[in-house]
Design a protein around this nucleic acid. Sequence first.
DNA 1: TGGAACGTTTGAAAAAAATCAAACGTTAAC
DNA 2: GTTAACGTTTGATTTTTTTCAAACGTTCCA
Lengths: 167, 167
Amino acid sequence: MDKDLEKLKEEFIINFGWAYKAFGLSKLMGHIVALLIYSPRPLSLDEITQALKRSKGPVSQITRRLRDKNLIRRVWQPTSRKDYYEIEPEVFENAFRNNLELVRNNLRIAKTFKQRVADVGGDDVNALDTRLSEMQKFYELMDKKYKEFLDEWEVERENLEKNRINI
Amino acid sequence: MDKDLEKLKEEFIINFGWAYKAFGLSKLMGHIVALLIYSPRPLSLDEITQALKRSKGPVSQITRRLRDKNLIRRVWQPTSRKDYYEIEPEVFENAFRNNLELVRNNLRIAKTFKQRVADVGGDDVNALDTRLSEMQKFYELMDKKYKEFLDEWEVERENLEKNRINI
DNA sequence: TGGAACGTTTGAAAAAAATCAAACGTTAAC
DNA sequence: GTTAACGTTTGATTTTTTTCAAACGTTCCA
């Protein structure tokens, strides 16, 4: 029984590792996030290290990066002077926001080059200009939709919150 | 003058490489996509190889992967029996669709584990169940918004097309 | 047929990234 | 002060990924 849950946890962690990798982040980041999602209480660095069978070095580094990205947070317990980590309540939302930054970067690239190509001018430039315009439009719409999504999610999240309290 | 455009192209290619990497793909994929966006005409494998200063092996492999992902397409010229490659007109849209697949995978993970955790049951499971529910809702909304975006983009793309013809 | 022009596959080499163990610095308890 | 309990940094090591050069297979043309 506990054995099953343990097995599930392991799979969950592995899955998250691959997912994180697919999104351009490190597998270990995914593992830690998954572990903390799974855990009902904050975990110390040593506990994470043990659970994932890693050494302290990389875990320390990655927890820092995860905090920088607002995916986990550090908390303290009154009884111990260890650092504990828990999942950021808005992990998914924050991960999404990080992604939005990449989208905006693409938008910047399109804009910048469109301008610079226009400045330089030349013969074969028309087709390129069209493509860059399209790229710009694409990422502008994407940006807009991403923001809409975040707004809607805020509403939905509040509803979830309410229902949870009412039960 | 041409020198400037050449310089720009190089920067554009490098930028795309990093962007692709940030999204979990290989830099070379980004380079090839950027090169073909930039080029007013289809390029042969050799031309790509030369332009990017790579050897044929990896370029051949990556062009295949890019075709599998519908980001570039292979075309033929009447005069030559070489393979030529050009950018897929809907690169951005297709790249987005590929990303949507990853989102759906996350949704599947959430659903699967929610179900399995419920089946196993146990004590510490409530908090976890709440989190997985939230994860599921998040990715469901994301899926919905992604689809909306694609629909809107289709409309906008048609408009761009029309305007281009009318000029 | 034979050979030249291709693209693809493959095994090895190089480069990059992840990981570790140990040294280090800091803080808190005694 | 001294020591023990931490987290962090660092340089080396391992693993993974990227890249290459060469062999290979196919097609087309002489």
